[in-house]
Every structure is written in C-alpha cells, then in structure tokens.
Measured scan of single mutants.
Amino acid sequence: GKELVLALYDYQEKSPREVTMKKGDILTLLNSTNKDWWKVEVNDRQGFVPAAYVKKL
C-alpha cells in the first residue's frame, strides 16, 4: 500500500520542484531516500518537502 505522511508545519514551496502543504495535511510519500527532502504527492502534484516538516503515519 501507499505510505502516508502527516504535515507537522505549513510549508510554502520555494522552487518548482517543491510543493506547498498545510499543517495537518496527509500526503502520499513517494520517496524518502534523501534524509533532508522527501518526495510527496499532494492534490495530484508531486514534489519535495523538507523531511523535518513531515512524519510517517
């Protein structure tokens, strides 16, 4: 099944490779191999968020 993460904080994208999320959002985790930036999918968009801003559910 898909792995989900919870947004712990708001995050505003700073580049086209990133995505914006709001605290409390549930996101689909696509890739967590990089310890600093995790790739997630939110609202049919894929991009990176800081790993410290999310936690695995």
Rank of each mutant, 00 (worst) to 15 (best):
G1T: 14
G1F: 13
G1C: 13
G1D: 14
G1R: 13
G1Y: 14
G1I: 14
G1Q: 14
G1V: 15
K2C: 12
K2W: 11
K2S: 11
K2V: 13
K2E: 10
K2M: 12
K2L: 14
E3R: 13
E3P: 12
E3A: 11
E3F: 11
E3Y: 11
E3C: 14
E3M: 12
L4G: 03
L4M: 12
L4W: 14
L4A: 07
L4Y: 15
L4I: 09
L4F: 15
L4Q: 11
L4S: 06
V5T: 03
V5A: 12
V5W: 08
V5Q: 01
V5C: 12
V5Y: 09
V5E: 00
V5D: 00
L6T: 08
L6G: 02
L6V: 14
L6M: 14
A7F: 01
A7I: 03
A7S: 06
L8R: 05
L8S: 03
L8C: 08
L8N: 02
L8T: 03
Y9R: 15
Y9I: 10
Y9D: 07
Y9T: 08
Y9H: 12
Y9C: 11
Y9V: 13
D10G: 06
D10V: 02
D10W: 04
D10C: 05
D10M: 04
D10A: 07
Y11K: 00
Y11G: 01
Y11H: 04
Y11S: 01
Q12E: 14
Q12R: 12
Q12S: 12
Q12W: 12
Q12P: 06
Q12Y: 15
Q12C: 11
Q12I: 14
Q12K: 13
E13H: 09
E13P: 14
E13T: 09
E13I: 06
E13S: 15
K14T: 13
K14L: 09
K14C: 10
K14E: 09
K14N: 13
K14G: 08
K14A: 13
S15M: 07
S15R: 09
S15L: 09
S15A: 10
S15W: 07
S15Q: 08
P16F: 10
P16L: 10
P16M: 09
P16Y: 10
P16C: 08
R17C: 13
R17L: 14
R17K: 12
R17H: 14
R17P: 06
R17M: 14
E18C: 06
E18R: 04
E18K: 04
E18T: 08
E18D: 06
E18A: 06
E18G: 13
E18L: 05
E18P: 05
V19F: 14
V19D: 01
V19C: 08
V19K: 02
T20R: 06
T20S: 15
T20L: 02
T20K: 04
T20E: 03
T20N: 06
M21W: 02
M21S: 00
K22M: 10
K22N: 09
K22G: 05
K22L: 09
K22A: 08
K22C: 10
K23V: 07
K23H: 05
K23M: 08
K23D: 02
K23Y: 05
K23N: 04
G24P: 00
G24D: 06
G24W: 06
G24V: 00
G24Q: 02
G24I: 00
D25V: 04
D25C: 06
D25L: 05
D25P: 00
D25A: 08
I26A: 03
I26Y: 06
I26M: 07
I26R: 05
I26S: 03
I26K: 06
L27N: 01
L27V: 07
L27D: 00
L27M: 14
L27A: 08
L27T: 01
L27S: 02
L27E: 00
T28Y: 13
T28M: 12
T28H: 10
T28E: 13
T28C: 08
T28N: 09
T28G: 09
L29D: 00
L29T: 02
L29F: 03
L29H: 01
L30A: 03
L30E: 03
L30I: 15
L30C: 07
L30H: 06
N31S: 13
N31P: 03
N31F: 06
N31Q: 10
N31C: 10
N31R: 06
N31A: 10
N31M: 08
S32F: 07
S32Q: 09
S32M: 09
S32A: 13
T33C: 12
T33P: 04
T33Y: 10
T33Q: 13
T33K: 10
T33S: 15
T33L: 11
T33I: 09
T33F: 10
T33N: 13
N34D: 15
N34S: 10
N34Q: 10
N34W: 07
N34I: 06
N34L: 09
K35A: 14
K35T: 11
K35P: 14
K35Y: 08
K35F: 08
K35E: 12
D36W: 15
D36L: 15
D36A: 13
D36H: 15
D36Q: 12
D36E: 11
W37Y: 07
W37K: 02
W37N: 02
W38I: 05
W38G: 00
W38R: 02
W38P: 01
W38L: 04
W38Q: 01
K39R: 11
K39E: 15
K39F: 15
K39Q: 13
K39W: 15
V40K: 00
V40R: 00
V40S: 00
V40M: 02
V40W: 00
E41T: 08
E41G: 08
E41V: 10
E41R: 10
E41H: 07
E41M: 11
E41L: 10
V42T: 14
V42I: 15
V42E: 04
V42F: 15
V42L: 15
V42C: 11
V42Q: 14
N43E: 13
N43P: 12
N43K: 14
N43D: 14
N43S: 11
D44K: 11
D44V: 05
D44M: 10
D44P: 06
D44A: 08
D44S: 12
D44R: 09
D44N: 14
D44Y: 09
D44G: 15
D44C: 11
R45I: 08
R45A: 06
R45N: 05
R45H: 08
R45Y: 05
Q46A: 12
Q46M: 10
Q46D: 07
Q46P: 06
G47T: 02
G47F: 08
G47W: 04
G47Q: 02
G47S: 02
G47L: 05
G47K: 02
G47A: 04
G47H: 02
F48K: 03
F48A: 02
F48R: 03
F48I: 07
F48Y: 15
V49M: 01
V49F: 01
V49Q: 00
V49N: 00
V49E: 00
V49T: 02
P50Y: 03
P50F: 04
P50M: 03
P50W: 03
P50K: 04
P50D: 02
P50S: 02
P50V: 02
P50Q: 02
P50N: 02
P50R: 04
A51Y: 02
A51F: 03
A51H: 03
A51D: 01
A51E: 03
A51T: 06
A51P: 07
A52P: 08
A52C: 13
A52G: 12
A52R: 15
A52F: 09
A52Q: 10
A52S: 15
A52M: 11
A52V: 11
Y53K: 07
Y53A: 11
Y53H: 07
Y53G: 06
Y53R: 05
Y53F: 13
Y53Q: 05
Y53L: 14
V54W: 01
V54G: 02
V54Y: 01
V54S: 01
V54D: 01
V54F: 05
V54R: 00
K55I: 15
K55R: 13
K56L: 15
K56P: 12
K56I: 15
K56D: 05
K56Y: 11
K56C: 08
K56E: 07
K56W: 08
K56V: 11
L57G: 04
L57A: 05
L57C: 13
L57D: 04
L57T: 07
L57H: 06
L57F: 09
L57W: 09
L57I: 15
